[in-house]
């Protein structure tokens, strides 16, 4: 446990000292003038356009930290041979992965908290809906960080890792749409099989999006909130297992 905490601590310190944290915070603050601009040029539904823009930019900022920073930091550790030094010490692969997860997760926790505060200050949505939205975004980070770690360790290029992580994010966000397109709009058996496999195997990031509750104060079934941590633990364990298997076989 001590080793996991140590790795997590230094992972978080790296993000803070790299000033990356401030770039993302600046992006978050920039969501407000961008929202005001969108509001000013929208003819109908100006208020909801403003809220939707702020919400979208805040989500992208949090996802960006996970995908970009995990890939950049991991690659840097590998290229500087510091990962070789760490892995030759009495550190188990799973300890390293969990340490990294908790370090990056701590940073995204800060961003989620800032996002929530910003939404509350701007009075976008009720406090209850904001809280649920932030918890969803926060839990989603576990899966995004693990996927990013998986690709950062699997692929031998930083750009490849970032692209693969973004693609994974895109597919997991579009699971329901892709399923609908592949099973309801065509009679092709292969397309239906692929669509169904994808739907049942891939994590559905749409479950974590409570933006509609913030924007329209739509009711959220209790079951979807209660089951979310369980869903995260199950899929988190699967992606962690994939990352661990990839990492255990990798020779540096």
């Amino acid at each position: 446990m001590k080793i996991i905490f140590t790795i997590a601590k230094y992972t978080a310190v790296e993000a803070i000292r790299d000033n990356f944290i401030f770039v993302v915070l600046a992006l978050m603050v920039a969501s407000v003038p961008l929202g005001i601009f969108i509001k000013s040029v929208t003819l109908f539904g100006a208020e909801s356009s403003y809220s939707a823009t702020v919400l979208m930019v805040l989500s992208i900022a949090v996802i960006a930290i996970s995908v970009l920073y995990v890939n950049i930091a991991t690659r840097r550790e590998l290229d500087g041979k510091i990962m070789l030094v760490i892995l030759s010490r009495p550190v188990q692969n799973w300890q390293y992965l969990l340490g990294k997860l908790f370090g990056f997760w701590f940073i995204t926790t800060l961003y989620c908290a800032v996002s929530g505060m910003l939404l509350a200050v701007l009075r976008i949505g009720s406090l209850k809906s904001i809280l649920i939205y932030v918890i969803g975004l926060w839990l989603l980070q576990i899966l995004i960080i693990f996927w990013s770690l998986f690709f950062a360790l699997l692929l031998n290029s930083m750009v490849g890792g970032i692209l693969a992580s973004l693609l994974a994010w895109f597919f997991c966000t579009s699971v329901e749409t892709l399923w609908y397109l592949s099973t309801r709009t065509t009679d092709n058996i292969l397309s239906q099989i692929v669509g169904n496999l994808f739907y049942y195997l891939m994590p559905n990031y749409g479950r974590y999006d409570f933006g509609h509750a913030v924007l329209y104060d739509a009711p959220i079934p209790i079951s979807s909130i209660v089951t979310l941590p369980i869903y995260t633990v199950i899929y988190g364990a699967i992606v962690m297992l994939l990352a661990w298997m990839d990492f255990s076989k990798k020779e540096y």
Binding site: K2, I3, T6, Y10, V13, E14, R17, D18, R76, G80, K81, I82, L84, V85, I86, S88, R89, P90, V91
Partner: peptide, 24 residues
């Protein structure tokens, strides 16, 4: 183990690097 041409964590001070590695 110490590899050739290794680069310690750029964001840490010398003391912090030693402390981090020793804690492992």
């Amino acid at each position: 183990f110490l590899p050739e041409l290794f680069t310690p964590h750029h964001f840490l001070t010398g003391w912090e690097y030693i402390s981090f590695m020793n804690s492992l």
